[in-house]
Design a protein around this nucleic acid. Structure first.
Length: 553
DNA sequence: GCGGCAATAT
DNA sequence: CATATTGCCG
């Protein structure tokens, strides 16, 4: 993000200063449009000749943000050439004739919108949206020079807003106003206005800031548990672990994670209107509750109106929705800390999820522990008789060695969430294969249920088997781990007990192997940190190799 | 204030 | 019924 607040202030009244290339052979019309645009603080460059306009664009592409081009019915290809040539420039076609096929042609050729003349203020006012849209929809690299600043600006603005929730966005208000006008004052007759082109969405709709609508890579949205609900109450937010809001927002980046983390905020009470908001759990944002306000305005929200400023007091308590993404972070944190230090505050710290409170984490932790206790203590106890207690009953002493290994670990564990953090949806059903929204809903217990023989308490849960055909890897040990169908057991812990006898030594084998050959793909579907935790745990207990004890029990 | 647990709420 | 929040206690 290049833009800083300085930049922001530099572009104080956003749409203002956007440079519009106006191509209209009708000088009167051109003058009229120009004056209207200028009244709205756009900077207009008028051309009456297509070739001139084109040469201007080609010679100084960075000089224009958006183009308004008249479809000239007289000349052969009036306007189309421009449209086809100036691909990088969001181009609005306009004409006084109302011809569907012409409109279609324009759109097909890449026009962002077709506006019928006369171009009213209302129609012109929001052309900036195309600029923004273009800025975000174009690839980062081939983003035209003129659009970059726009993108940066918008991104930083949004980011800033998220940061101070408060929104000192006069800018936004203006934009909002503009949108509102566009939204409310639409002339019934103007088809164009009702369907302003595919570009207008975000900022106009309720969830304008928190992207939702326009993102291409929404993998799960449709599967959202509440998707049935017409009320777009809950919005999902793409979360990237270390990315800027801009990136999160920009449809551009394909690098986003499949799942989103979200924290819903409920605005219950009052009118009985209950609105949920999701917060971007973006690690870096100081978003938090404040932000809710921002997204809180939904045009269709009851009393809502679009009163520019709902009291932030409005923002109710957050109801944390522990999505897989969120849970993953949680587990990862717990994992890193080791059971001993897996304490709410620290977990929270590690998770770096804004909007999440210590209480939330504590609660989740409680549940997490509970489940683990109830589901595997059996084999746990059997397998690691006394060690067991030792581990879970925190050892205040011994600073824990869970950490050191991590640093040297190839897998970045810190603030950045590597591939491990991303459960491939398709890989294992346990981890919510797309369809599942509740990570731990499936059949038995929680998906984080540790595997038999693995001391879950110490290293949290196996996040999931490594997707890439590792099956063969673990089968090498005769460990027929759920290659996608073993997990069907719904009874308590069938597989556990089943594998008990046969797996006994295998487990040791696996452990040994993991210890001796940490570079090998992990057979257990454990994530690396877990392995380290194993080591740490073992060494903490003074066991540097395979505990002899294991062999007899 | 924090962690953990239980009660309570949704 | 499961999950998340709130409350209480050490």
């Amino acid at each position: 993000m290049v833009c800083t607040r300085n930049d922001l202030s530099a572009w104080k009244d956003f749409p203002k200063g956007l440079r519009v290339l106006l191509l209209d052979e009708d000088t009167n019309s051109a003058a009229e449009i120009k004056s209207k645009l200028e009244a709205m603080d756009y900077i207009v460059y008028t051309f009456c000749n297509e070739n001139e306009a084109l040469s201007a664009v080609s010679s100084r592409p960075e000089s224009f943000h958006v183009a308004i081009v008249e479809v000239c019915t007289n000349s052969n290809n009036g306007g189309f050439k421009f449209l086809e040539t100036a691909k990088d420039l969001p181009t609005i076609m306009t004409s006084n004739i109302h011809c569907i096929s012409t409109m279609m042609k324009c759109i097909a050729l890449g026009a962002v919108e077709f506006l019928r003349k006369p171009l009213s203020e209302d129609k012109l006012r929001n052309i900036w949206q195309h600029v923004v849209h273009k800025a975000f929809s174009a690839g980062g690299d081939d983003l035209s020079e003129s659009l970059k600043p726009v993108k940066d600006y918008v991104a930083s603005m949004l980011h800033q807003q998220l940061e101070n929730g408060e929104c000192k966005h006069e800018d936004l208000d203006k934009i909002e106003d503009a949108s509102m006008i566009h939204e409310n004052d639409h002339e019934p007759s103007a088809v164009n206005n009702k369907y302003p082109a595919p570009s207008t969405p975000q900022l106009q709709q309720g969830g304008r800031l928190i992207v939702n609508g326009d993102c291409q890579e929404h993998t799960n949205c449709s599967m959202e548990k509440e998707s049935g609900e017409p009320d777009g109450e809950s919005k999902s937010v793409e979360t990237t672990s270390g990315h800027t809001i801009a990136e999160v927002i920009a449809p551009v980046g394909q690098h986003q994670k499949p799942r989103e983390t979200m924290v819903k905020e409920e605005a219950d009470s009052v009118d009985g209107a209950k609105g949920e908001r999701t917060l971007d759990s973006h690690p870096r944002d100081r978003v938090n509750s404040e932000d809710s306000r921002a997204g809180a305005e939904k045009p269709n929200t009851v009393s809502g109106l679009h009163s520019s400023r709902p009291n932030k007091a409005n923002r109710k308590k957050l109801k944390v929705d522990w999505t897989t993404e969120l849970h993953k972070k949680f587990v990862q944190a717990v994992d890193q800390l080791g059971i001993d230090q897996a304490i709410p505050s620290r977990i929270l710290e590690l998770m770096k999820v804004e909007g999440l409170t210590r209480h939330n984490v504590a609660s989740h932790l409680q549940k997490y522990r509970m489940h683990k206790r109830h589901i595997l203590p059996k084999e746990d106890d059997r397998r690691w008789p006394q060690r067991d207690q030792t581990q879970r009953s925190c050892h205040p002493h011994k600073p824990i060695m869970a950490f050191p290994p991590y640093h040297s670990n190839p897998v970045p564990v810190g603030p950045v969430y590597p591939m491990w953090g991303t459960p491939h949806p398709a890989s294992i059903q346990t981890w919510g294969s797309q369809g599942y929204y509740h990570p731990w809903q499936p059949t038995e217990s929680w998906q984080w249920k540790p595997y038999p023989g693995v001391h879950a308490d110490a290293w949290g849960c196996p996040v999931m088997p490594i997707p890439q055909g590792n099956c063969s890897t673990f089968t090498r040990n005769g460990y027929g781990f759920h290659c996608s169908s073993t997990m069907d057991n719904r009874s308590g812990m069938p597989q556990n007990s089943i594998q008990h006898q046969p797996a006994e030594e295998v487990i040791d084998e696996v452990v040994k192997e993991a210890i001796n050959k940490p570079w090998l793909p992990l057979p257990l579907g454990l994530k690396p940190p877990s392995t380290d935790s194993v080591l740490a745990e073992l060494s903490r207990q003074g066991i540097s190799t395979i505990p002899p004890r294991n062999q007899r029990l």
